Simulated scan of single mutants.
Amino acid sequence: MRFGAEMRRLREAAELSQAAVAARLGCTQTQVSRLEKATRTPSRSDAERLDLLFGTAEGVSFTRLYQSITAQSGSPVWFRSWVEEIEPTLLVLRSWDPLLIPGLLQTEAYARHIFSQGPQITPEDVDERVEARMRRQHILDRKKPPMLLALVDAGVLRRRIGGPEVMREQLGHVLELAQRPAVFVQVVDPECVAGLAGAFMIAKLPNHQPDVVSSDSPTQAHITTDHDIVTSIWQRYEAIRLWAYPERVSLKMIEEARRAWT
């Protein structure tokens, strides 16, 4: 809220319109309006460009304000633009996960075990990240939720995360969510070589906006609308989907795996 208030104050003092600021930030007037109303989380690029525009006038540093904002969120810094700007507005989300149950489908116990194994992580950090992950899942509870099309490697069903009880609960949760009209889960044959490059998500947004992809690496996700990268990820998604079992068969496989966790 302070970021937005300072942005509006300095913009008006400089006699600039929202459209003029938008042109300097490389975004739309609507996005500037959302920043000023505190309904959009600023990016580091927003902060740095505002500092260049206003020259840290009157001691205001948007970069420091941005750092204060990100220090209070439970999500990793590199993921916040996706969680706070992409997921709340998307129409369709396609995902591929070769190692774990997708975050939007995870139970609290499953997510907690994953986060607790991070190097040098504190119990407080684990609590914050689990809470952030559970908040993400609220998009599936909306009156008009986005369509979720999740491809999961068959090995994920047998990968022990937190023990048999956690796995039984997790796979049962996936089966329950898969009964929703907007959630589709397919298991991919483990011989699918195209999927070995890593996890990714493809978001379809409203108003004919370009697709956005998020692809994982060991340290951060790469989020982009670059046409060549998006096209490459789409091609990989289609190549993986060719190895996916039909949904009916996939759900049967998940149920069999759930029963095997004794």
Rank of each mutant, 00 (worst) to 15 (best):
I101A: 07
R34W: 08
R24Y: 04
F115E: 06
P218N: 11
V60P: 04
T231C: 11
R159G: 09
I69M: 09
E238P: 01
E108P: 01
G195S: 06
V130C: 05
H208L: 09
P206Y: 00
A199T: 07
S45C: 12
P210I: 07
P145C: 04
Q209V: 00
R133Y: 11
D228W: 05
R168P: 02
I229F: 10
G4L: 03
D125R: 14
R2N: 10
E176I: 04
C27S: 10
E36Y: 03
R258M: 13
D127Y: 00
G162E: 00
L65W: 09
P145S: 05
D97H: 15
I233S: 07
S214D: 13
E87P: 07
V77H: 05
T89K: 05
T30D: 07
A19Q: 11
R259D: 13
P42K: 10
H208P: 00
A14K: 11
P98H: 02
E191W: 04
D189Y: 00
R64H: 15
Q170N: 03
R168G: 02
T225N: 10
H113M: 09
N207P: 01
L50H: 03
G162T: 01
R80C: 05
V187P: 01
K144F: 12
R2C: 04
P123R: 05
D226A: 14
G163Y: 04
M253F: 09
W234I: 15
I161P: 02
P42H: 09
S68H: 13
R133M: 12
Y110Q: 02
T28M: 02
V187S: 01
S43D: 11
E256H: 09
E191Y: 05
R112T: 14
R135Q: 15
T122S: 14
A154Y: 00
T107G: 02
V213E: 10
R9H: 08
A13V: 07
G195T: 10
Q67M: 12
